[in-house]
Simulated scan of single mutants.
Amino acid sequence: MSENGNGRGARGFLTRLVRQSRLYWLKVLRIKAEPEVVARGIACGVFAAWLPVVPGVPFQILVAIVSSFILRGSKVAAFLATWISNPLNWVFFYFVTYKVGGFFSPFEHLSIRIESFDMEAIKQLANVGWRGLVVMIIGGTIIGIPSGVVAYFISLPLIRGYRKRRALRQMRKTTSL
């Protein structure tokens, strides 16, 4: 096949990725809840996305849903927003959370020192153990809280604007009939 949107090449992959991202965003926009509720759900999901993925445990999703329950946000929006962290960018997220968490870590000496973002860093991150996991949770929490707040304030006007435009389109459609 060719390297167009339907092909298997890099361009086709990126096209599918963009389409899938847009589909998830439209699903979030169409959630039947108040914009503030949806934005709180997005904030909870973005916060949880900075936490590490624990194999066999849907840790990010559990944190997103529990925090959206506590903050009265949309659970669906929280679930979908966790996908900003995905297998394509986990290494970046882990690297950043490990570096930030290491700065605030209660552990004096960890067995690894990550200085650059390369294959060696990936190997080291894969073998950090429970101490490294705690460091990444600390770093993820420190980065996730402000990220969630920013996500709330960015998504709220976007949701309101989308719904306003949609209502205007519906009104035009009904008045032109």
Rank of each mutant, 00 (worst) to 15 (best):
G5K: 02
G7P: 10
G7L: 06
R8G: 15
R11E: 02
G12W: 01
L14G: 10
L14M: 08
R19C: 07
Q20S: 10
S21E: 05
R22F: 08
L23H: 11
K27F: 04
E34R: 12
P35Y: 00
V37P: 04
V38W: 03
R40H: 08
I42F: 01
F47E: 12
A48S: 14
A49P: 08
A49F: 04
L51W: 02
V53S: 07
V54I: 15
V57K: 06
Q60C: 02
Q60R: 15
I61D: 14
A64E: 07
V66A: 12
S67H: 01
F69G: 15
I70L: 12
R72D: 13
S74C: 14
F79K: 08
L80Y: 08
L80S: 03
A81M: 11
W83I: 12
N86Q: 03
P87I: 01
F92Q: 05
F92E: 02
Y94L: 05
Y94T: 03
F95S: 06
V100Y: 06
G102E: 11
E108W: 05
H109D: 04
L110R: 09
S111I: 00
S111M: 09
I112V: 15
I112L: 11
I112Q: 07
R113L: 10
E115W: 02
E115V: 05
D118R: 00
D118G: 07
E120F: 03
E120Y: 03
E120P: 05
A121Y: 06
Q124D: 13
N127V: 13
W130S: 13
R131S: 05
R131I: 00
G132S: 11
L133H: 01
V134S: 07
M136S: 10
I137N: 07
G140A: 01
T141R: 02
I143N: 08
P146K: 01
S147Q: 00
G148N: 03
G148R: 06
V150A: 13
A151R: 01
F153S: 03
F153V: 06
L156V: 02
L158F: 12
L158M: 14
R163V: 09
A167D: 12
L168D: 09
Q170N: 09
T174E: 13
T175E: 15
